[in-house]
């Protein structure tokens, strides 16, 4: 672990050389979540409720999903640089070290400006929590703590999966981004708006619904209007484990493909 801490410090020291526009990039990162929230805010001022949830409740969905997404983006969003590493041959250098490739990617390319995004998401979460009525029980407190972490694992798995895909498709970055950022975007809304087919897809295939909407239902003590079983909203940690296992498998297969194909 200390090894990765050392790599992290080195990455940050390297970036310190380019401090000039860091403040503006941080601001951009803060605003990017604000940008998404404008949409929630604008739509929920036009209609009182969406899928039975009002502005404060949708804001809670938004904030839970965004916190998980921002955390994942900060820790492992660097996998979108796999293509660059492969093209420049620096991926070989990662393979020459006695460390995990994923750990090295995460530590070596960390982007601190992504903290701005996490900060905004947490701020929206605090405000949303103050505006909704929750019957707090120990289980709900536990769920509130676990949800951003499960969300981070779920989105992190998507980032890793997208990175793994670029071992096969060198130009696959945009498709990968559609998966990761697209899921991050739709997870900010009640899943029911997607309709039955897409809604089920982003619950059971890509578990985006487990990062915001479903845990929000559990916190608020509501039932899903589309008829999902009542225990499902509590199952985010399980969904996270499944996603992580699938992503790890895909990444290993990707590395094996890279090692097999030759860079």
């Amino acid at each position: 672990m200390t090894v990765y801490a050392a790599l992290l410090r080195a990455a940050l020291a390297g970036q310190a050389g380019y401090r000039a526009s860091f403040a503006l990039e941080l601001l951009g990162s803060v605003l990017v979540i604000g940008l998404d929230f404008v949409e929630v805010y604008a739509v929920l001022t036009q209609v009182p409720e969406l899928e039975g949830l009002g502005l404060a409740e949708v804001a809670l969905v938004f904030a839970l999903a965004s916190t998980g997404f921002s955390l994942a983006d900060l820790v492992i969003g660097q996998t979108d640089r796999v293509t660059d590493h492969v093209r420049r041959g620096t991926f070989d250098v990662l393979l020459l070290r006695p460390l995990s490739t994923l750990g090295q990617l995460a530590a070596a390319d960390v982007q601190l400006r992504r903290l701005g995004r996490l900060g905004t998401a947490l701020a929206v979460l605090v405000i949303a929590l103050s505006q909704v009525e929750v019957d707090w029980t120990p289980a709900r407190v536990g769920l509130l703590v676990l949800t951003p972490l499960s969300g981070a694992v779920i989105f992190g798995s998507l980032f890793v999966a997208a990175g793994a895909v670029s071992f096969w498709l060198l130009d696959g970055r945009e498709v990968g981004n559609a998966l990761t950022y697209g899921s991050g975007y739709l997870a900010q809304w009640p899943t029911g708006v997607l309709g039955p087919v897409l809604g089920r897809f982003f619950t059971f295939v890509v578990p985006a619904a487990f990062t915001g909407y479903l845990p929000a239902l559990a916190l608020l003590g509501r039932d899903d209007p589309t008829g999902l079983p009542g225990w499902l909203p509590w199952a985010s940690p399980l969904a996270a484990l499944a996603a992580a296992a699938a992503a790890a498998l895909l990444w290993r297969t990707g590395i094996r493909h890279y090692v097999g194909a030759g860079g």
Binding site: T2, V3, L7, A10
Partner: peptide, 16 residues
Amino acid sequence: WWDLPLAESFRLLAAI
């Protein structure tokens, strides 16, 4: 490490 002093790269490799 491209952006770091040589000594820092050695320190990192020793840690690795």
